[in-house]
Simulated scan of single mutants.
Amino acid sequence: MTDQVQQKIAQIKEELQVDFVALALSSVNAVTKVRVIRWRYVAGNTNQNYKRIRLQVGKGIGGIVWRTGRAYQATDLQKQPEKLVELPITRTEKLETIAAFPVLKVGEVKGVLLVGYREKRAVTKEFLTVAQDKANELMVYL
Rank of each mutant, 00 (worst) to 15 (best):
L104R: 08
E119G: 00
V36F: 11
V109Q: 05
G107T: 09
L25Q: 15
D133C: 00
Q6S: 12
D3L: 13
R52A: 15
A99F: 10
N136S: 10
N29E: 13
N49G: 05
L25T: 15
P102V: 07
K94W: 10
P88T: 01
M139E: 11
I61G: 01
D19G: 04
F101L: 07
G63S: 08
T32E: 09
L128W: 01
T68F: 04
I64C: 10
L77F: 07
A100D: 04
A24K: 02
Q17V: 11
T124M: 02
L142Q: 03
T97V: 07
A131N: 01
L142R: 03
T32I: 04
Q56E: 12
A10N: 15
R70P: 00
A71M: 13
A122D: 10
V65Q: 05
Q7P: 00
A22Y: 02
Y117P: 05
R121K: 15
A131M: 02
R121Y: 06
R121P: 02
D3T: 12
K33D: 09
G107R: 10
K83Y: 11
L114R: 05
E86L: 14
I61S: 05
V103N: 03
T90M: 06
K8N: 10
G44K: 03
V34S: 10
Y41Q: 02
Q17D: 15
L128K: 10
Y117H: 14
Q4L: 15
K105H: 13
V34W: 00
G107I: 08
V103G: 04
G62M: 08
A10C: 13
M139G: 02
S26Y: 09
R54I: 06
L128E: 08
D76Y: 13
R67L: 15
R40T: 14
K79T: 13
A10W: 07
Y50C: 04
T68A: 04
G44F: 03
V42T: 15
K79G: 14
A71D: 08
M139W: 00
G44A: 05
K120S: 11
E119L: 07
W39P: 02
E137N: 06
A131I: 01
Q132P: 02
S26C: 08
G58K: 07
V140N: 00
G58W: 06
A71I: 06
R91E: 13
G62E: 07
I53W: 01
G44H: 03
V36R: 13
K13M: 09
D76S: 13
I53D: 00
E82K: 14
Q11P: 01
E93I: 08
V34R: 12
L138N: 00
G62V: 08
E137Y: 02
